[in-house]
Amino acid sequence: MALVEIRDVYKSFQRDTQRIDVFTGLTLDIDAGSFTALMGPSGSGKSTLLNLIAGLDKPTRGTVRVGGEAVSEMSASQLAAWRARHIGFVFQSFNLLPVLTAYQNVELPLLLTRLSGKERNERVKIALDVVGLADRADHYPRQLSGGQEQRTAIARAIVADPTVMLLDEPTGQLDAKSSQEVLALLQRLNSEFTKTIIIVTHDAHAAERAKMVLHLEKGDLIEKPRATAAAMR
C-alpha cells in the first residue's frame, strides 16, 4: 500500500472574483521509502500538492491519505498533532527562528512530545550530527551560512523521526556547492535511514538525485512517474 494516497483531488482558489482551479481530479500514489521529486513550471501546483500532503491546506474535494490516515478529514487541532508526529517540512528560505540557536531550532518539534529534557538533548545532538553541524549547535542562524541554515532546517525536520519529509525547493536559495551538500544529505537520509522524501524543485540536477520524478503542469501529471538514474543505482 502506498504511503501517500491522493484520490480524485480538486483544489481551487478564489482570487477576487476569479476562481482558479489548481487540481481537477488528481490521483497519485507515493510509496514509503521513496525519494520523489515534483517538477513543473510555476503555478503548476507543486507547492499546493506539498501543502495538501502536509495537511497545511485542504482539498476542495477528494481525499489525501498519509500512512492510512485521512489528512483531508482532520480538524485543525488534529492536523497540528498529526504534523508534529508525521511530517518534517523544509522550506526554501530555511525559516529558522532567528532568536533561537541551531540547537534550539532543532529542538522545537521535540517540545511537542513527551520526551524528557535529556532525551530531547540526545535526539537533537544526533540530528545535528547527521547533518554535520554538531559543532554549530550554539550558533544563531545569522552566524550560519545558507547551506548550514538549510542543513539545520533538515535536522529540525528529521529530529522527531517523521513518517515523511516534505521539502519545498530546498536548494532554491543555495549556491551550487551548498546545493550539492544538501542533496547528498537528502540522498543519505533516504538510503541509509529509509526516510520517505518528497521534494519540490525546479532544478533538474536536484531532481536527478531523486528516485522518482513527477511532472506537473496546470495541476495534471503530464507523464507517468519516471524512475531516475539514482533509482537504478
Binding site: A76, A81, N95
Partner: peptide, 14 residues
C-alpha cells in the same frame, strides 16, 4: 515564524 511553528505542529491553542 508563527506559520513555521504551525507547520512544525504547534497547535493554535498553544
Amino acid at each position: 515564524e508563527i506559520a513555521v511553528l504551525k507547520t512544525i505542529g504547534f497547535s493554535d491553542r498553544l
